[in-house]
């Protein structure tokens, strides 16, 4: 018999290393004569879109099409430390570093531009990689300006470090002033169907509202919600590396199961954008938070469907049938 249920979970996640750990990111932005804007960062793109996010931030600050931006420096000998791509920190940390470096470069564009046009900053306008002294009058491209600056023995280049302070919590009490730079929140509602013959669960719908501060790239944020949730459903329903007496008995993808494309629910999601965090353009990190709600939302939906509470993960068909029998 199939029984429907609905469950909910609200979660929070303090992102960045926090706890007083020296967490920072260094980035460099440079306008080069060959019509490129080089953003130098050692940050790793694991697929979530780090390189794209940095590109968008630099393009936004420098008011130029993203196609001119090139991320370089994925090499210990070519870029300084950007910190890890973990702790949901890159958009916030490297994003801020790139934003600051780009702003520094923008400052230089105005500075050298005002020397070139022999005018003051307020009279200058920047648009699409060009600097204007006034409407309909003389303009100069970034690349031309880079050349002029080079002749002065200088560069249109800046490095910035984003290094916010957190404080180590007391180890006995855990108390501290600022433990994490910010928190991301999310609420999910999940509809499921439990087959009481087999104990198998099918997840039908997932409704998500994610507090993102501001989405730098909404499509990629939705990608995080979907990817994180499905990974979380794996944890909730099937994933289990079984280690017996120190030996893993399912060290392959035949017996360690993760969700397939046929196991996924329908998604409906909303991004809550209050533009109110300390991240670039008010954004905050979303990578990890998106996995956190799935297992409790599913477990709560199971309770709603069949009135049994499973307190260990994964919620396997065996556990469902056993719990149903105990309930009888």
């Amino acid at each position: 018999m199939k029984k429907q249920g609905r469950g909910m979970a609200s979660i929070m996640f303090g992102f960045g290393y926090g706890e007083g750990f020296p967490d920072h990111s260094i980035a460099e932005v440079e306008i080069t004569k060959d019509k490129r804007i080089k953003v130098r960062t050692a940050g790793a793109d694991l697929g979530q879109g780090f390189l794209t996010t940095m590109t968008q931030i630099a393009a936004e600050v420098l008011k130029i099409d993203p196609s001119y931006i090139e991320i370089v420096g994925q090499d210990t000998h070519k870029a300084k430390n950007s910190g890890s791509t973990s702790a949901t920190r890159q958009t916030f940390f490297s994003g801020n570093a790139v934003r600051e470096a780009a702003e520094e470069v923008m400052g230089k564009i105005y500075h050298y531009g005002s020397l070139y046009f022999n005018s003051n900053h307020p009279e200058l306008t920047v648009k699409d990689g060009e600097l204007y002294a006034c409407d309909e009058c003389e303009k100069i491209t970034y690349w031309e300006l880079a050349e002029i600056v080079e002749q002065r023995g200088k560069e249109l280049k800046a490095e910035a470090t984003f290094f916010p302070k957190t404080y180590a919590p007391d180890r006995k009490t855990g108390q501290g002033e600022k433990i994490y730079v910010a928190y991301t929140f999310m609420t999910q509602v999940m509809d499921i169907e439990v087959d009481t013959d087999t104990g198998l669960i099918e997840v039908m719908n997932v409704y998500t509202a994610l507090d993102v501060g501001r989405a730098i790239n909404p499509q990629n944020v939705h990608g995080q919600i979907e990817g994180g949730t499905v990974q979380g459903l794996g944890m909730a329903m099937m994933e289990d590396q079984v280690i017996e007496e120190g030996i893993t008995i399912n060290a392959d993808m035949t017996n360690y199961l993760v969700p397939s494309i046929q196991d996924i629910p329908n998604f409906e999601s909303t991004l809550i954008e209050n533009n109110d965090s300390g991240g670039p353009f008010g954004s905050k990190g979303v990578g990890e938070p998106t996995i956190i709600g799935a297992s409790p939302a599913l477990s709560n939906a199971v309770y709603d469907a069949i009135g049994v509470r499973i307190k260990s993960l994964p919620i396997t068909p065996e556990k469902i049938l056993n719990a149903l029998e105990e309930k009888k």
Binding site: T198, G199, N250, P317, E318, L321, E325
Partner: peptide, 18 residues
């Protein structure tokens, strides 16, 4: 890894019926 004996007996019962 794919199920306990107890589970299989229960499911055997249920799927025979279905």
């Amino acid at each position: 890894i794919r199920g306990t004996a107890e589970y299989r007996r229960k499911v055997a019962y249920n799927i025979t019926k279905s």
